[in-house]
Design a protein around this nucleic acid. Sequence first.
RNA 1: UGCCAGGUGGUGUAAUUGGCAACACACCAGAGUUUGAAUCUGGUAUUCCCAGUUCGAAUCUGGGUCUGGUAUCCA
Length: 590
Amino acid sequence: MADRINFLYPVLKSSYYRRSHNPLSSLPLHPMSTEEKKEEKSLNFLEEIVEADLAAGKYKTIMTRFPPEPNGYLHMGHATSICLNFGLSKKYGGATNLRFDDTNPVTEETEYVDSIKEDVKWLGFEWKNEHYASDYFEELYEMAVKLIKKNLAYVDDSSSEEIAAQKGTPTQPGHRNKYADRPVEENLQLFADMKDGKYKDGEKVLRAKVDMASPNMLMRDPVLYRIKHAHHHRTGDDWCIYPLYDFAHGQSDSIEKITHSICTLEFVPHRELYDWLIEKLEIFPSKQYEFARRNLTYTVMSKRKLLQLVTEKHVDGWDDPRMPTISGMRRRGYTPEAIREFCDRIGIAKRDNIVDVGLLEFFVREDLNKKALRRMVVFDPVKVVITNYTNEDELLKSENNPEDPDGGEREIPFSNEIYIEREDFMENPPKKYFRLAPGQMVRLKSAYIIKCDEVIKDEKGNITELHCTYIPESKSGSDASGIHVKGTLHWLSVKHAVTVEVREYDRLFKVEDPSSEEGDFKDYINPDSLKVVKTAFAEPSLKNARFEDRYQFIRKGYFTLDKDSSTSGMVFNKTVGLKDSWKPQPAKKN
RNA sequence: UGCCAGGUGGUGUAAUUGGCAACACACCAGAGUUUGAAUCUGGUAUUCCCAGUUCGAAUCUGGGUCUGGUAUCCA
């Protein structure tokens, strides 16, 4: 049945074919087909490969892995890989392992292992098994012995410079040295001696015997093992020889029966070696597939550069909200849902790319709009006195989230002295200025309509107060005034306002692609990427803010509580601003 | 330079594998609005170049060109 549908479907779906040859063209397609059509979402090239493999019966179920090296914090690029690997196995009923590629003891630390696990979990994924390449050291050693026995590997005493020189150039083949002819027995003994610590770092290496004339430089007898008398974060001092990436990754995949080993494009040349080793070792045939890594505008993504930003204190740490790290984005208030949606909807391919960070921000807004509690916060206040408001202070109700009917309401105190945003008033407004101006009316969100009667200034001409009158019949929810105003402002009762600190972030760099610019990428750091508002005024309900809550400060943007907050002082991070399509007209001169 | 990968609106991806180049973001215009948000309507804009095959090419062929990767005892 499924086969038949698959066979017919492409024909029916062809609009050309449908119109000219299909007598049912004006009718809806077969119910099954319309159903499918609704679900219709084109497959990315990896999904196509998986579906083809599954259809061919190559595997009954798929297995993927996420293989970070624990030498830094995870960033947006890793998120792509995580979503791909876990997404693929989830979609096709397989599983994904988390594997730490820890074959280089000098760069790796447990601190990173922990943060990586935390980040993957936070993104919402569960791995099947947690593995470490270092767990396979014994097994890998045995594999190397097997290769030696097959006379496909040998111990080389040359220095790294000599080996490099013998490798030839892209246009000229390399040549073997005398060590390549060492008999199997001798190689076995030497390799065992290497393992037993009889040699110093760099004295000897184990190389595969492949092809010194290969057009692929990587196949010219690549180094498999090197000597490093270094402490490993997991195996301690058990080993003094460590396998290189090429001798660890494919075999680790194989040991875990990974069916689809997904990596980035720079590993394409490694695929030939990957396959060669699996073939010669006669082990489970994992297959490597490559995709183009994701780049984002106005940031850098390489671990080396991110590390520099941290160590040279251009940012506050790996989790600085301006960093493209997972921990940075988390601290900034991005949600895992938004990041996952971004990764999924952006797609994947094999060409170079640089994704507009605005696209990421769109997905963040889209998610936050549904979740964030609305609150009023005034960053730069100007006092408004409502001269005809002689009542007692009152409590007004306002919805927590207009997008969420079940979101409930909270109460906001109103009195005759309020704050509004300084930028929401203009003495000589341009055309189409909907905010407050002399003689002009605005609605105070969830409260009343007010009209500006008088501007009070100090001796220097600075505006210190605005005197307004309110329209009693215009109370929110029971407005009988019949007045329609274009502008609605956020506001706070002066005596009820609480103070909070607000940190606003802008792009970390001034240019779209700092890495491609002349000179040092750090020359392009945006000096204004952090703006701190030490004292902003907030409505009282914000006193109960919790770390996991997301807020929208009305007309300001999305915010979340920062870890620097304490009982004495709350600190909010701006996650992302609201879209702002208001373009001020050229202002009239004052 | 050798080898490898890749060029589709401003950005990222599609195109049922040779049959009307689509989706999202961005942008513009409008509607609406107790957030100049969200929402809704409409719009601008695209196949690297040159040939060839074909009724028909983003897709196939040849040549060119541009971009990236690689040439570490990093991963």
